[in-house]
Design a binder for these strands. Structure first.
Lengths: 221, 221
DNA sequence: AAAACTGAACTGAACCGTATAGTAACTGCA
DNA sequence: TGCAGTTACTATACGGTTCAGTTCAGTTTT
């Protein structure tokens, strides 16, 4: 019987000299399973996905799948939790850190532009977002993990920008508003095929958004 | 064999004096099927829903279900297309028309408040939104129908408000931005359980949103 | 030898859609 | 009014398929 690690994430290196060749091979298979599961779950959603197809997509026998993950739910959880950080950091993390302009307003514009073209730069992100929303009742802890990571990676970073622009008082709310308007547009235009119903000029949208949300904190009325 | 109306929407009144008693009875059963389907699909999503459970929830035999709808897809389409207008008009339609203040800024505030408490006032709307997003690849025309109706019911109405506030030029974009920020907050806080991760002060959010998005159209920079 | 994997068969259950046999209600005609 | 014909429905069962998860004998790799 296989070691039935099965769903947990026990990494058990027991030797001084790194992972043995067997362990490396096993981890490689495990990764193959996750890759196959990614294709399957992103394409069909949770309920309509088949473990046989996962095994086939991974180029692995079904027994191997169940050797690494206890059941369908465990595999799904492992996959999505791995994807949360990965997808978000590709959107707000490394690449955003790479070349964001120093001037805050310009940084906002650049960030908005990157988000709004995520359909091209991160096509898997849309499928992932759909999956998280679709399964937010069946797997609430997955949605929470996603949001917690989004708080750190997205809201945190943007809040810092707004503190430099409009003072600390409303910075976090402004950041949420900024992110919200962007994510919403992606959702409607790209995920729900709004492009084919009522296309929106993304540049104009982003420009107006940056301008409005950067307004000084004066309190009229 | 039943007439196999089956999925289409052929209403065939052949008499002068309204629907016959048989037809009334039949329509009543059809509505029962739709009600059962609503419970089932909203709770389990499309793939995980069972036609047997739909029939049971409707208090109807399975043959009756298939007498009224050709197959699972046809039932799902009929249900969701019926729900699109229903859900949206409850959110932006009659109730919004009923008591919206005359002063535009106040109207915006009222609209925002109503949207942000939709979790209490329209609990089914969240499940419906999740369903639309989850099945936006399998049933793209459903998503488009939803968006088209949202354009008329939501964006259209709000655009008129912004024309009264900030001039016609950017009114539509402002309306999209306004709606987007609201829908996004609902999505994150209510659908994805963000309340339990990082709760947001909705009143402050709405107030800041109204203030920023009502700013005069001056063009600095 | 031992761990990990393969391939294939298998179980038990759920599901979709159809079919059948029988029942209750309504309609039109006498 | 009475009676046959039609319509919609119920209950049940069935065929065919799919699926999650298990088992096991055999093979590769260390």
């Amino acid at each position: 019987m296989p070691p039935a690690d099965a769903g947990g994430d026990a990494a058990v290196p027991r030797n001084t000299s790194g992972p043995s060749a067997r362990e490396r091979r096993s981890q490689h298979k495990r990764q193959a399973v996750l890759d196959g599961a990614r294709r399957e779950f992103l394409q069909h959603g949770y309920a309509a996905s088949s473990m046989d197809r996962v095994a086939a997509a991974a180029g692995v026998s079904k027994a191997t799948v169940y050797g690494h993950f206890a059941d369908k739910q465990a595999l799904f959880r492992a996959l999505t939790e791995a994807m949360v950080g990965e997808r978000l950091s590709e959107l707000f993390g490394a690449s955003a850190q790479q070349a964001l302009p120093a001037e805050p307003a310009a940084a906002l514009r650049e960030l908005a532009a990157r988000c709004l073209e995520c359909r091209h730069s991160q096509p898997q992100f849309l499928d992932f977002l759909r999956l998280v929303i679709a399964e937010s009742e069946r797997f609430p802890e997955l949605a929470k993990t996603f949001l917690a990571q989004l708080e750190r990676t997205g809201v945190g970073r943007v809040t810092a920008l707004f503190e430099a622009i409009a003072g600390a008082a409303e910075a976090e709310l402004r950041a949420r508003l900024f992110m919200g308007a962007l994510v919403h547009l992606i959702l409607m235009q790209d995920l729900l095929h709004g492009r084919e119903v009522a296309p929106v000029d993304r540049e104009a949208y982003a420009e107006l958004l940056v301008r409005l949300v950067s307004a000084p904190p004066g309190t009229p009325g």
